[in-house]
């Protein structure tokens, strides 16, 4: 197998592991603003009868939807790219004030091997911005860390009422080829 083939296999495998984590935690709503790094998970979420995946026009909608899901007894996970973190800032006051459990999985841009300079400011600010609004940040840099970090994040969010953002780093996702 060539290097590109191996990369593709590694990528599909950590994405499948991540998806299995969501299934184990009985996540029922997966609102998302798409990103390539989430593409496989979005596809699987749409195909799984135990989940409802739905696209948003902006990431803050998913913050609000996560609260509604929890009010109604369901667990959700919000998928977004780092550029969307800034769109969520004020809506995160809902999570903070009402202490809603909240997990978002953020694919990173603008931090490593980035071709598009417009991705850089929000890429740099994504983690600190989440932390400023009371969401704790956990990073994943290696494929074999994905499942353990996401599993633990799910546990902490839904068992001890926390708000967590898992950042999937660009070293994990690979460069976007232009």
């Amino acid at each position: 197998m060539d290097a590109a083939g191996q990369d593709a296999e590694t990528s599909a495998s950590w994405q499948d592991e991540l998806f299995e984590c969501l299934l184990r935690e009985k996540i029922q709503q997966v609102p998302y603003v798409p990103d390539n790094g989430h593409a496989h998970i979005i596809e699987r979420a749409h195909a799984d009868p135990s989940m409802l995946a739905y696209p948003l026009t902006t990431e803050e909608e998913g913050v609000a939807a996560a609260c509604g899901a929890w009010l109604g007894g369901q667990k959700s996970v919000l998928l977004m790219q780092s550029s969307g973190v800034g769109n969520c800032i004020n809506m995160l006051s809902l999570i903070n004030n009402c202490r809603f459990p909240f997990l978002t999985i953020v694919t990173m841009r603008g931090e490593w091997g980035e071709f598009n300079p417009w991705q850089v400011p929000m890429g740099r600010a994504a983690g600190p911005a989440m932390e400023l609004m009371g969401v704790s940040v956990r990073r994943v840099d290696e494929p074999n860390q994905v499942a353990p970090v996401v599993d633990t994040a799910l546990h902490d969010v839904f068992s001890s009422d926390q708000a967590v953002a898992v950042l999937l780093s660009q070293t994990l996702l690979g460069r976007k080829e232009w």
């Binding site: 709503q29 609102p31 609000a64 609260c67 109604g72 004020n90």
Partner: peptide, 22 residues
């Protein structure tokens, strides 16, 4: 009743997440 005191622009989406759940 669930009342928002902030998070302006979010009421409809809170309702959507809730409608899916119930």
């Amino acid at each position: 009743n669930f009342y928002l005191w902030g998070a302006m622009g979010g009421a409809a989406m809170v309702g959507l997440g809730l409608a899916f759940a119930r």
